[in-house]
Amino acid sequence: MSKWHLIIDVALCHNCSNCFIACKDEHVGNDYPGYAASQPLHGHSWIEIGQRERGQAPMVDTAYLPKTCNQCADAPCTKIGEGAVHQRDDGIVIIDPVKAKGKKEIVASCPYGAIWWNEEEQLPQKWIFDAHLLDRGWKEPRCAQVCPTGAIKAEKISDADMQKRAEAENLKVLSPEFGTAPRIHYRNLHRFTHNFLGGTVIGDVDGRNECLEGVTAEVRQKGSVVGEARTDAFGEFKVEKLPSEEGEYQVSLALEGYVTSEISVTLDQSRYLGELKLAR
């Protein structure tokens, strides 16, 4: 049985927020009986874009992470609320806008915080994968259609096939430890979850500082190499995918004709080490 899945590429999201806006456009002022009551104009973000800034000038980036209802295969919300929440055959989880009235506990049941409480209607609400439109023959949910970078793709495939694909393409789910089998997979999630270490290497050339290109920057932790990069024409290197936990690292910078430099750094977040000068 095929189910609806989303694949979101964190490296492609640039926070235009069209997915968020489309969700508001679809639901504010519109009731879809059997699917969802209307969303309040302000306050709710059924699709929400998280952001994480890494590094320091001039080596800095922000990763954006669209988050919404994961349509989990093992969704905790479906287990409470006495039938107010159900999962359709296509995997889409629906909070019944009539049966769920007054059931605030449904909000708390979601470990991802993807369910919102509509105070006025006394209703738990969330993104419904545009089930009402798919049922009318639409080919994809609106968040995928409005995404200008191709960061959000919708796929209707079996969970098993999705699993294979996730393994082959290194796709991750958010907080797998929740054990709910989410149906949103992320590509390049390390951009959000992991750290980088970078710097600019310069050296003395004919009596002046110059950017050094081709310097090998090797990052080690407890003796083993965890990353390597070479400096570009601006002398910059950037080693990605370092774990987010605090750790001690050693960086060696090597270029023929210069004395190899060894630096120790403690990393609790992404760091740009600044200009590092190699001696002749």
């Binding site: 235009c16 806006i21 508001k24 456009d25 002022g29 409005v146 191709g150």
Partner: peptide
């Protein structure tokens, strides 16, 4: 290019400013 038109946030938010 993709076979669809793209839209800026300010355009996509139009319904909310109409009403």
């Amino acid at each position: 290019p993709p076979r669809k038109t793209t839209i800026n946030p300010h355009g996509l938010a139009s319904k909310s400013v109409v009403y």
